[in-house]
Design a protein around this nucleic acid. Structure first.
Length: 471
RNA sequence: GGCCCCGUGGCAGAGUGGUUAUGCAGAGGACUGCAAAUCCUUGUACAUCGGUUCGAUUCCGGUCGGGGCCUCCA
């Protein structure tokens, strides 16, 4: 099965053809760590996590690199304000980021490089750029000379004159050309810095990704991803740095960008205070609910993240887990064991149902369609009484795994973390209610049911007896 | 000003040149002591105006409306 992805560079949907068909390499710009990750940071993490899950099914080997930016002026400012050391601040918030992403089902990247561990590589890169005439030194800064690269601006499709005309920031006097951007800037005594051929200083924003991508993936690789806002200038500048330093015709073959998250219909902004952190959302909602909501719109479209949306995502997961609960006695082979064998089988489909969900994802990660197919499978699983139950259940679980959903068990989903009442107490009340019902004492039966409901536990009488769920 | 995106039923949100998206919410029914869950049935949907076409929500153009980027930003 071919994987089609929208390539920002060509503005077209293209079939992914890796440089090395045996080994797909991708790089996604990760967070700058100085505070709790907000929901906007979570979207690319989740979207590209799904991409990697799909890639791992399609290709023998995948290397996924996603960085952590741990040197940046916002970090420096935050550390100064709070008095916390930069190392402590970045280690602490990076750890929270990892935990929060894990909670929403994001598998760790293969490599999670940190900018501060790659300063020598950045310096080496700049030395090459200077030697080749693509960068110059001015007043302790190293700047990239944009006019030295005629193709500059291809990704964002803007030419130099437009950029200069539209610039909202005053051009620094030491720039030879107004479009030039900073690779390295000097640090004063109480600002963190590293020794370099140009004095003590620190890297500009863009050079770190060029250095880290080259270090872990090579001079060219397959896919480069990130938020839509990174197209310009960040990715444009990465391309300039990497291509000019290595003398290559491209940096990455495919560029993928996710759309923005808006919150309750308004643009998320720190000044409005209308952003949700993943951390606070996790106090109220299961991670899968947050994940499902993030995947409920196509990744390139804007996503309105709302409390109503969270409620609906929860309802959808309840429905999917309910289907699994109803089919809990249906045997199925271990999806994980099955996956290995299917990696090769993706080409040449002889069993279309098995690829029902994968097929949707292979069309430019159409997660809303994939989710609708999960529902469709759940409906069929609920309905059928025939021998196709095991295969439907397996297809549902495998499809959900590609999306990183249904990773819990119905039991844990509906009955996990009932901390205000002991399971044995619930059992006792269910038994008492069963006796009351037998004696046609429905008033007592309903009293027990209502009492449990008040504690967040809902009882359901089925053919096989009474089951409970947390509400 | 330049570049780019979007406008689908109460809500969310796919997709397609002619045939049911899907889910949530709502209505009716089956089942149930009553519920819940599940199943069945149900709703004038495709901003607007032109054009192309046998036929357009789907292609083209205009209009209106909303949004993003233009060196802080996932």
């Amino acid at each position: 099965m071919d994987l089609k992805i929208s390539n920002t560079f060509s503005r077209e949907k293209e079939i992914l053809r890796p440089i090395d068909p045996e080994h797909v390499r991708l790089y996604v710009c990760g967070p700058t760590v100085y505070d709790y990750a907000h929901i906007g940071n979570a979207r690319p993490a989740v979207v590209f996590d799904v991409l990697v899950r799909v890639l791992r099914r399609l290709f023998p080997r995948v290397t996924y690199v996603s960085n952590i930016t741990d040197i940046e002026d916002k970090i420096i400012d935050r550390a100064k304000e709070s008095g916390e050391s930069i190392v402590s601040l970045t280690n602490r918030t990076a750890q929270i980021y990892r935990e929060d992403m894990a909670a929403i089902g994001v598998l760790p990247p293969d490599v999670e490089p940190r900018a501060t561990h790659h300063v020598p590589q950045m310096i080496a890169l700049m030395e090459v750029l200077i030697a080749k005439g693509h960068a110059y030194v001015a007043e302790g800064h190293v700047l990239f000379a944009v006019p030295s690269m005629p193709e500059y601006g291809q990704l964002s499709r803007r030419d130099r004159d437009e950029m200069i005309a539209g610039a909202r920031v005053e051009v620094a006097p030491y720039k030879k050309d107004p479009a030039d951007f900073v690779l390295w800037k000097p640090s004063d005594a109480d600002t963190p810095g590293w020794d370099s051929p140009w004095g003590r200083g620190r890297p500009g924003w863009h050079i770190e990704c060029s250095a880290m991508a080259a270090e872990h993936l090579g001079e060219t690789f397959d896919i480069h991803g990130g938020g839509l806002d990174l197209v310009f200038p960040h990715h444009e500048n990465e391309i300039a740095q990497s291509r000019c330093a290595f003398g290559t015709g491209f940096m990455a073959r495919y560029w993928m960008h996710n759309g923005f998250v808006v919150v309750e219909g308004e643009k998320m902004s720190k000044s409005l205070g209308n952003f949700y952190t993943v951390h606070e959302l996790l106090e109220e909602w299961p991670g899968e609910v947050i994940r499902l909501l993030l995947l409920s719109a196509h990744y390139r479209a804007p996503l309105d993240f709302t409390k109503a949306g969270l409620r609906e995502a929860k309802a959808q997961l309840d429905r999917l887990y309910q289907a699994l609960e109803l089919a809990k006695d249906v045997p199925t082979v271990q999806p994980h064991l099955e996956l290995r064998n299917q990696e090769r089988a993706m080409v040449g489909i002889d069993h279309p149902q098995a690829y029902y969900v994968a097929e949707a994802l292979c069309d430019d990660l159409n997660t809303p369609l994939a989710i609708s197919r999960l529902h469709s499978l759940a409906s069929r699983l609920n309905k059928t009484q025939k021998e196709d139950k095991p295969s439907l259940k397996r297809t549902l679980l495998q499809g959900a795994e590609l999306l990183g959903l249904l990773q819990s068990t119905p039991d844990a989903w509906f009955r996990g973390e009932l901390d205000n009442i002991k399971p044995i107490e619930i059992e006792r009340l269910i038994a008492a209610r069963a006796n009351a019902r037998k004696a046609k004492n429905f008033a007592e039966a309903d009293r027990i049911r209502d009492a449990l409901k008040a504690k967040g536990i809902e009882l359901e009488d089925g053919p096989a007896g009474t089951t409970c769920k947390r509400s």
